[in-house]
Amino acid sequence: MKDRFNLYRFASPATFYPLAGRMIPWFAAFAALFGLAGLYLGMLVAPTDFQQGEGYRIIFIHVPASWMSMFIYLVMAFWAAIGLAFNTRLSGMMAQALAPTGALMAFLSLWTGALWGKPMWGAWWVWDARLTSELILLFLYIGYMALVAAIDDPRRADKAGGLLLLVGVVNIPIIYFSVQWWNTLHQGSSVNLTKSSMAVTMLWGMLLMAFCFWSYAIAVALARVRSILLERERHTDWVKAELLGVGDGERA
């Protein structure tokens, strides 16, 4: 019973808003810390890759960005499911706060993929299964954001967006599978990435960068969800108290 109570307490916007505010600096600090450590290992310490030369160092942002782009979509779908099942106010806002960061991650993944592909495969873009799926994932993000932006009523936007996310998450494996199949049929195995055994420093560099991206995404999403919360709940007493409280603090 006590757990239940706590869960509800944190799910209530009035508690969550200040909590998020306190959490943001921590995640920002983690992001900076992991980022610096990861860059140090990846850019300064790690040796070159004997097949790909120094160009492989793009991996330290390409792979974390791709992971995050997929992970964020899954997290959004998770919030969507929670929101549709339990009708919690916060879930839809969380999904909306995550979407732009997820889309940026997908874009970064494509951008760095292109910059990696040019020296390795000799082309900015190849219809490789992974790049193609990533492109479709970017379309899914854009579709979600466009749908949510087109609906005026925030509650309807949450629900419709959530439904779209669930439909998308069911489709992602199907899309990935079909694209991969299509790719192998058309291209043979000509553009497989070289799978060199990775040095331990490289692996650590990549993991640290992944943690950096992860903390970064959380910090940005929390900040964004705070604006959405204020906007949505601006007629409630807690927002009024919160705003006036902040005002007092500034004057003091």
């Binding site: 030369g53 120094e54 160009g55 942002i61 970064l108 760095t112 990696w116």
Partner: peptide, 16 residues
């Protein structure tokens, strides 16, 4: 110079 890959590597890191 990144072993000749400077443009690609720094292009990626720069935008990120």
């Amino acid at each position: 110079a990144m072993g000749g890959y400077g443009f690609y590597v720094w292009g990626s890191f720069g935008l990120t």
